[in-house]
Design a binder for these strands. Structure first.
Lengths: 346, 346
DNA sequence: ACCTTTGCTGACAACGTTGTCCAGTCCGTA
DNA sequence: TACGGACTGGACAACGTTGTCAGCAAAGGT
């Protein structure tokens, strides 16, 4: 293999072969440990020596190899974030918040999308563990997290966000989904609606079933019967939402309002409702950009993804800093944002 | 420090002290290298031995320490992604695409937001380099990337996305910004508009000035004069956009159309325009979710962030697989999506 | 003059893995 | 029985860093 020494910085500059502390030490005419001391700003080095070492570092283009450092020190100063889809605005706000907090603690962030595939979640998570991340923030997709037990036992801190861990006991930061839905559905009932539909995500997803529970409880508390034709749980693919909503609207006794179980459903529903001649009120779970600019502006029950991420990551670092005690479950409240679509029919 | 051996899996299970291959080897009664062979699926191990090793692995909860592996092998199987803001939908789509491709090549992804702070960009980038990422995908914010020279010389591949590198020659994947804007402005002119405003980002940002150039060129080509009061470059903070746009609308001879230089400007402008009594046509740079559901639906010049990310990452891995040759610059075309707001005035 | 202290420096081992290389075992064949 | 060859297993060094410890010189105390 030809390895052109295409610059004249020094012997260690062969392509791909980076200079090490040893090279720096040789060039500066000092010992290895002295270089380490300079690089890490440790005390006990004369300004003169420091100067010599620094010149050698600059001349060689040396940069400390953190892999070796990590191996030696045992701490990686990195955390892993596993979520459903980095491209979803909800999760991207959450990610940003996680990143922000991690940065505050001097940590880098690994991210990965599970794409709602349990196997992929596990694969990603364990890959992060193999990299020996200090901690994990997980938006779970799988239904059995026992695979994490040895990792947690070995000292990798884990906090679950948005949905709780299953089959293991772990820290979790959630929104009070049922409570938030109650507010939204109560709002619709308050506007005089009696025939209210609910379209949500796959019922095996914790948040989805919690939201459905909130809906049923509110309807029951108001003494309103729920026709099962009004309830549809499943994929949030636009096609499915279109089909289900159209079916409900074509009923001889159609619903007059819809509670949509998450932002993807809301968006899909909006496309049907704006095209429909029949007026239907709408309250959606999750806020989204421009919700206020649509006409009518869309009433929502909002979670705060950034706050979820921030809270979870703070909790994670508290654990890393030695906080012990039983797993904690933090529940954040949702917030009803009344904008119009709940009252004025489409 | 109390170190409760709170399970009985084995001696190596003290909290924080993970079992190593050595422990596994001891327990299985084989040599170190044999464990390594089993862990890595290398051939040359009898089924029987393999079985014994595997049991020891399971019993101890062993997981290979990739830090050590990386140190030994020299490849990290990870790439770093530096962008402006993970929370911005545009970048989150891009991130997702980068992640997808990296995954295809068996790499994990480090992400970090520079927040438009050049220093932070450099800090993040170099932190990734210290972790010895195999490659970098960078949405640059700074104006001098010479700090990357030693890293690139040492073999870290780098691809810039959305904006080119400055003061070094590096691979870049960009949108043809000026060309895309020309299409959008031409559309407005075609609709009969003569007094067209342009509100964009800080002019020192490459994409912002390219877009401005596209605007000026199109106006000039059509023989239309540009009043400098119609042009405003600067922060995309809603307050500034509000102020500038209001100023333009309050002019005795107000503009009849606006080209907004990116999605943040578009959103801010929409809020002003929907509140305004005066009709103003709008074409925005960058598509956004629900643009079609607003009334009027918003006409945009769309980039494809996922395609940008995908292309850049493919290029990165091509380099990692040995592709040489001079730095390449790939330009993707923008796409005009006519939806109404360009014709029908607000 | 000697001993202690202090400050600076470097030799060496260790972190957990993988690549190299050599030694042993087992088979079939001559 | 002897022998080559294929296969299996293990000892050892190396990756680049940091922690430990010891050495050495200069300065200070008696």
């Amino acid at each position: 293999m030809a390895e052109p020494a295409h610059n004249s910085r020094g012997a260690a500059q062969r392509y791909g072969a980076r200079p090490t502390m040893k090279d720096v030490a040789a060039r500066a005419g000092v010992g290895l440990k002295t270089v380490s001391r300079v690089v890490n700003g440790e005390p006990g080095v004369t300004p003169d020596t420091m100067q010599r070492v620094q010149s050698a570092i600059d001349a060689l283009g040396f940069r400390r190899n953190d892999s070796a450092r990590i191996l030696r020190k045992g701490r990686t100063s990195s955390v892993g974030l596993v979520l459903e889809d980095l491209g979803d605005p909800f999760y991207s706000s959450l990610s940003r918040a996680v990143e922000e907090v991690a940065r505050g603690y001097g940590s880098l962030l690994f991210t990965g999308s599970s794409d709602e595939d349990p196997e992929r979640e596990q694969e990603l998570t364990l890959a992060f563990c193999a990299r020996r991340v200090d901690g994990l923030v997980i938006v779970p997709t799988s239904f059995d997290h026992r695979y994490l037990e040895p990792e947690i036992a070995a000292g990798i801190a884990s906090v679950f966000v948005d949905r709780p861990a299953e089959r293991i006991d772990a820290d979790a930061v959630l929104t009070d989904n049922a409570g938030a839905v109650r507010e939204g559905v109560a709002h619709l009932i308050g506007q005089g609606h009696r025939r209210i539909a609910f379209i949500g995500d796959q019922p095996r997803i914790h948040t989805a079933s919690e939201r459905l529970r909130g809906y049923r409880e509110t309807m029951a508390a108001a003494g309103l019967p729920v026709d099962e034709a009004w309830v549809s749980m499943g994929s949030t693919a636009p096609e499915r939402v279109h089909a289900e909503l159209s079916r409900m609207l074509d009923d001889p006794q159609p619903v007059t309002a819809l509670f949509s179980g998450n932002n993807r459903v809301t968006v899909a529903a909006l496309r049907v409702l704006t095209a429909s001649s029949r007026p239907v009120a709408l309250v959606g779970f999750d806020d989204f950009e421009l919700a206020d600019l649509l006409s009518p502006a869309v009433t929502v029950v909002a979670q705060d993804p950034a706050r979820l991420g921030r809270t979870a990551t703070e909790l994670l670092f508290n654990r890393l800093e030695g906080e012990t005690g039983p797993p904690r479950r933090v529940e954040l409240r949702g917030r009803l944002i009344v904008r119009g679509s709940g009252e004025i029919a489409f």
